[in-house]
Design a protein around this nucleic acid. Sequence first.
DNA 1: TTTATATATCGCAATATTACGATATATGTT
DNA 2: AACATATATCGTAATATTGCGATATATAAA
Lengths: 109, 109
Amino acid sequence: MGVTKTDLFTEKQNELAKIAKVFAHPARIAILEYLIQSDTCINGDLVQELGLAQATISQHLRELKEIGLIKGSIEGVSVCYCIDPIRWAEVQHLFHDLFGGFPKISGCC
Amino acid sequence: MGVTKTDLFTEKQNELAKIAKVFAHPARIAILEYLIQSDTCINGDLVQELGLAQATISQHLRELKEIGLIKGSIEGVSVCYCIDPIRWAEVQHLFHDLFGGFPKISGCC
DNA sequence: TTTATATATCGCAATATTACGATATATGTT
DNA sequence: AACATATATCGTAATATTGCGATATATAAA
């Protein structure tokens, strides 16, 4: 099928999965790392930096934008992308909560 | 295409993406949460707990096992699954490192 | 040995993702 | 206005993921 039965799971489980899906591609990880490392928020350079076509980069940027992880502001002809610190912290917390749940007593198999 | 150009990215970027992909499904999140919450590592109950077919659950468990996040030990007729604390911590660190990189100076767009 | 129970794997159909050329849009330059 | 530059979107082909019925495997019970 390829279609996920979201109705079987909680809102939170679906949200975390949706966010994880955005992290689930090395190009998007690379874009995020590039945005973290370069204080200045460049966009077009990504096409040079990663070896992907412009259309592909744009598509990845849109997915990052859709979950609010990055935002872009038009800067003349080009677009300046950067990480949204608020959302970044939110997402960080979501993962932290999941990982923090374990271990509790930690002893079984 | 659907095929990812892994050769364009670093080992670490590819690994993190691969791990994120496993988190990128609500059923697998639900399985992990269930394993965290129940000290005892039950397996078959997952079929009851989530509303998915046995074959589907088994498939999700395999993906979790493949990246080492959980491990299963045969317990008579059934299999006892649980989170691998070592790998769990490793993966936690990978995400922590990514999130920790930001903000540095945090001011741009 | 036969039967029941639990889990894994196979094979398939439906859908999703990835990549990119072509093209649209929008701003700056001449 | 005409052109160049930067980015977004569309359409499409190739591949991946998801879900599950059917079936295989493996242990326990009768």
